[in-house]
Design a protein around this nucleic acid. Structure first.
Lengths: 337, 337
DNA sequence: TTGTAGGCGTTATCAA
DNA sequence: TTGATAACGCCTACAA
């Protein structure tokens, strides 16, 4: 491996000049810069990342903390962040906190403090105050995506608004027997996504003067199978709804499959609206409120880069929740008279 | 941040002893080791990863090269590898080569040579000979998962065997009008997965003395929508098959949805067998040949660790393709007489 | 614009 | 078993 000295010697300059020529930091004449870069290319020289970060304190590496890497929302956020970070020369190190519980604290304790990354993105990671304290101690920027972390700036959608948009759509179409296919309000629901959506569902109905009938809310774990099972209950119920609001697109897909199996036609006999903007929405013809997690990841990365990179100042107003939009497809229509 | 000197001073020993006490490398008396670790804990000392790797040449970081992070197979492999690596104290840095094409060569050129990782896992990454050469130059272990890379040891399943197992199942049930829902044999099919499966399908039929009828092979891109579309063609064809072999579980799901829509009952009127072992297989009742990508990831990590870690010698015979197994569910049965 | 030289925080060799 | 100390390879004031 060629080192900076080799290049310096071959180019007839000092190592300082090589460093400056390669990194772009500091003043170098155009001529020498080109020469150095040429020599470097010939020698196949690439600066050692470890040496560079030891000397500079920067690592060009961002850590992403996530509880899952195999769920749609998380994957999309990771992909969006990665794309943006990579575009600016940053590596992404993935800390999967979901796998083995015992690993979790070691990961946070050891690695996160080992100064391997310049900053963190935490996707829906519930951190306790001790953990947050430690993260602040090491003084590295951190930004949350999804679930809010106390004392940490977080970008996310407004779960209340999301449900309102979906419900408004159904109400405007003329539905009144609307059921909820919700997320379970258990201890996994650390960030109250499931409960916020349910509460908003109820309050919107109430405001519209529509009572929430017993049995008109069924719950699952945001997956297709759970949506299917819960929808079956909803649709075989005595007072079958004319519309369903699903807390996730995947649950909505499950509901669509369940409805087809029961011979219930969508949208004439049953309207379904989801929340997410899942790629398969198109395929299933699902009307949904798109929360664009890919963009959430990109935005998180952009804000982070803004803090880390010296010359950037594309400040983003982080107090505004990210926009969501209703995507109308063929799963919703006016209820049959 | 406490440094090694702080700990040395506080514990009344040399930095060398601190280093040895913390890393476990080198001989230290039990007593001093405990004392040092206690002092280190009190001071909240954690060794700097960059400094350590500059000095030792090891980074405790593994790079995963992948073209996608949002596709089931890849996510599973990553998850399996990550889990295993993390268990041994390794970080995982993700190099997503799929996103922006222009990024690809820079990633390979720059980062991979910057010595930030100790080894690589390449999941279905097509590398040209120049790229392989460079990877060998830096002399870091590399292992492929899925697609074979010239000169690089690769673990993968035997695509021929997979198809044979699935076909044997259908043939044993008594099917003879078997159609293929294949992968498109285009330039994306670098590793000939699609074409190998198709060829094996044809040869198995031929050996069974069954002609491959025109129109009995339709192709897609391994996704649910493409499986749906291709299956529609297959099932509205004049000579409708009694069984379908799908090149991926997702395509099989698409086929199941298509069949239901056409009012074709599974498995009495149509048997469907997939390839993958997708989580949703259970939900759809899909008979499939499980290729366990999670385990593929774990195995890749284990082999890599075996090379990197000093004291391990759990040698794995890498010349054996990984095992696959037929998972029988409710999507296959004898054809109706 | 360029060069000199002192870190950056560990690890590992060699003596003791 | 422990301690001194020379790398590790680069960055960055500071000086020229």
């Amino acid at each position: 491996m060629a080192s900076i000295d080799d290049v310096a010697r071959a180019a007839g300059v000092s190592t300082a000049t090589v460093s400056r020529s390669m990194s772009g930091r500091g003043a170098v004449s155009e001529a020498t810069r080109l020469k150095v870069q040429k020599v470097a290319a010939e020698l196949g020289y690439v600066a050692s990342a470890t040496a560079a970060s030891l000397a500079s304190g920067r690592s060009s590496n961002i850590g992403i903390l996530t509880p899952y890497i195999d769920r749609w929302f998380f994957t999309e956020v990771i992909r969006g962040a990665q794309e943006e970070l990579s575009r600016h020369g940053y590596d992404v190190t993935l800390y999967n906190l979901g796998g083995v519980p015992a690993q979790r604290s070691r990961m946070l304790d050891d690695f996160i403090h080992r100064g391997r990354v310049d900053a963190f993105i935490a996707i829906d990671v519930p951190l306790d105050s001790a953990e947050i304290g430690r993260l602040h101690d090491i003084n590295r920027p951190i930004i949350g995506v999804g679930g809010a972390i106390a004392g940490v700036r977080t970008i996310s959608i407004d779960d209340t608004e999301v449900v309102r948009i979906a419900m408004r759509h159904l109400l405007e179409l003329g539905h009144s027997r609307i059921a909820l296919l919700g997320g379970r309000d258990d201890d996994v629901d650390v960030f109250k996504v499931a409960s916020t959506r349910r509460k908003t569902f109820e309050s919107v109905l109430r405001q519209a003067g529509i009572p929430v009938l017993p049995g008109s809310m069924q719950f699952g774990d945001f997956t297709i199978p759970s949506g299917y099972t819960a929808a079956k209950k909803l649709l075989t119920h005595a007072n079958r709804p004319t519309a369903i609001l699903a807390a996730s697109d995947e649950m909505a897909f499950g509901a669509i499959i369940a409805a087809r199996e029961l011979g219930i036609t969508i949208p004439s006999e049953l309207s379904i609206v989801g929340i997410d903007g899942h790629d398969l929405g198109e395929f299933f013809g699902l009307t949904t409120v798109d929360q664009n997690p890919l963009q959430q990841g990109r935005t998180a990365a952009t804000i982070l880069l803004d803090e880390i990179l010296p010359h950037r100042t594309e400040t983003i107003d982080i107090n505004t929740a990210l926009p969501v939009r209703l995507v109308k497809r063929s799963s919703t229509a006016k209820p049959r008279a």
